Simulated assay, not measured.
Amino acid sequence: MIKIYGSPLSSAGRCYWMMEELGLPYEQVPLNMREKQHKSEEYLKINPNGKVPAIVDGEYVLWESMAITNYLAKKHNSPMAAQNAEEEGQILQWSFWSLVDLQKPAVDWLIQAMFVPAEHRNPNIIADAQNVLPRYLQVLEKGLTGKNYLVGNRFTVADINVASVIGILHALQFDLSNYPNITKWSQTCHSRPAGQKVQAMRSSTH
């Protein structure tokens, strides 16, 4: 059974989503972040970065959420995995893009809005995120033109990885009305039974 370290509220959420899509049994290993358990000597042997998520699959250890989703889909021969080199290139393209470009401003804003006390918030960080996000969202909106999914006209690793980042914007109540392609695609992805189950897990974790 796979052991997963990290709350569904963290970047581990996309890993839970993938495991639910695949119907895999897993064991959630809780880490108390306030008590710095993710920086403990024991956990650093699993992920030397002291971050979540990480998984232990038998003797195999892997960290970085988007590497985990890709690995699981491939290992279990899922249609969500790439079927050829071209699809793999596109899946990695969208996954890396969402992590490097889209997720950073979204997380910066989320931290300020939900974790920093109002009197200590930095309005410049929020403003910067609000200013840059539309440019990135236009890239995704255009990429979804005439398509139901990002790669291969089927639900793939790319959709889980990117939709999980869009989920941060939903949490921030970001207005996506100017992005009809993203809105339709996101609703399709998040309405999947596995996506709904992870959302319920996230809600119960609050």
Rank of each mutant, 00 (worst) to 15 (best):
P48M: 03
G143I: 02
I182F: 02
V157Q: 11
M66Q: 15
Y43S: 04
E141Y: 07
N153G: 07
E59V: 00
K39W: 10
R121W: 00
A82G: 07
V100K: 09
A118M: 04
V29P: 09
N181D: 08
S11K: 11
W94C: 05
K75L: 11
R121S: 04
I126V: 12
P123I: 04
K184H: 12
S177V: 04
N84F: 10
Q173V: 08
D108I: 03
T145I: 05
G195S: 07
L72K: 12
F115G: 01
V52I: 15
V151L: 12
D159Y: 02
Y136I: 01
N32G: 02
T205V: 10
Q173F: 14
L133C: 06
G143L: 04
I160R: 10
D159C: 07
S177T: 15
Y179C: 08
V100H: 06
K45T: 07
L172H: 13
N77R: 04
P105W: 11
S11T: 15
T188C: 11
N49T: 13
Q173M: 09
A67H: 08
P79V: 04
N161V: 13
A54I: 07
E20L: 13
K142Q: 12
G6D: 08
A194F: 03
Y43F: 15
Q173P: 03
L144K: 10
M1E: 14
G195L: 08
G6H: 03
I125M: 08
Q112C: 02
E88V: 02
W185G: 03
R34V: 05
Q138K: 15
L144S: 06
D101W: 01
V100N: 14
P8I: 09
F155P: 05
Y136E: 11
Y60G: 00
L172C: 12
D57G: 02
R154N: 06
L31T: 07
A12I: 08
W97S: 06
H206Q: 14
Q199K: 14
H120L: 12
